[in-house]
Amino acid sequence: MSDSPYGDLDRPPLHEAALQRALVRPGGLWREVRVVPETGSTNADLAARAREGAPEGTVLVTELQTAGRGRLGRSWTAPTRSGLMFSMLLRPAVPVPMLGWMPLLTGVAVATAVRRMTAWSETGEGFLAGERTPERGDAAVDARLKWPNDLLVGERKLAGILVERVEGALVVGVGLNVGLREAELPVPAATSLAIEGAPLSDRAPLLRAILRETGTWYREWTALEGDPETSGLRTAYKDLCTTLGRTVRVELPGDETLHGTVRDIDGAGRLVVAGPRGDTAVSAGDVVHVR
């Protein structure tokens, strides 16, 4: 018997062998998908493997993360099996100035997969279990992107992305709230797919969809040497970005604050903010949407 009031059947485990069979293919991006029951941080673990020479396409997933980190060192916690916590090891052969697109690319992939996998059938009979593109008329959880690395539904945070450079590689971490109930949320500003009406008890199809979407975008983007225009990445990101057109407050490094209206996402993935002194391109900062 489980100690959880919701029971184990409500939060089934991920199966490493099944994920390996579904995702690891000759010539494909994903080389290894490992699932561990618990760890401190998948990013930290995969960074250590990167230093040891682990290949691109290594993925580490955990059922419980006890020391997960977001931007600015913020903690990220969730009950066992209530979300998707995983990291990907990538070695993109693109110009260094284009590496800033990696968290944005990941955001596009995660948001697209979430929207597709939580679509309603046309009969309104419930959320789809298959990995398919929603047909016209389907309604989806309206997952949107907050620059640079958060997924929101409305103004509540559904997922976070953390990209770290490790000796020429990138470790890309994703934390996505799937089955959390209101009482389990770490902060009131968070949400989950369950809270938004998409009770996906089996997280495996969603994880497969995210990794496949990431692989598709990553292969296209790197084949075009990181060009966000010809790959379509900049257009896709702007279509999903809820920060565009918003009045914002940006907390910049060095205790500076920028106030203004977001006018664009430029070719380097930077936020272009129109303020009192004209346009400012921001490559790093904590963005607050001003109501």
Rank of each mutant, 00 (worst) to 15 (best):
P92R: 08
P92I: 07
P92V: 09
A93N: 07
P95W: 13
L99A: 10
G100Q: 09
M102G: 14
M102V: 15
P103S: 13
L105F: 06
L105S: 01
L105T: 03
T106C: 11
T106S: 10
G107T: 04
V108L: 03
V108W: 00
A109Y: 02
V110P: 00
V110E: 09
A111D: 04
T112H: 11
T112R: 14
V114H: 06
R115P: 00
T118I: 06
T118K: 06
A119H: 10
A119I: 09
W120T: 10
W120C: 05
S121A: 13
T123H: 08
T123I: 07
F127W: 14
L128M: 14
L128Y: 07
A129P: 12
R132H: 15
T133S: 10
E135H: 15
E135L: 12
E135Q: 13
R136Y: 12
G137L: 11
G137H: 11
D138E: 13
D138L: 04
A140I: 11
A143H: 13
L145A: 02
K146A: 09
K146T: 09
N149C: 11
N149W: 05
D150Y: 01
L151I: 04
L152G: 06
L152A: 07
L152N: 06
G154A: 06
G154Y: 00
G154R: 01
G154F: 00
K157H: 00
K157I: 03
L158C: 11
L158Q: 03
L158G: 06
A159N: 09
A159L: 08
A159Q: 03
G160W: 01
I161F: 12
L162P: 01
V163Y: 00
R165I: 10
R165N: 08
V166T: 13
G168Y: 05
V171Y: 05
V174Q: 02
G175W: 00
L176K: 03
V178F: 08
R181I: 07
E182T: 05
E182I: 05
A183S: 11
E184K: 04
P186Q: 08
V187G: 06
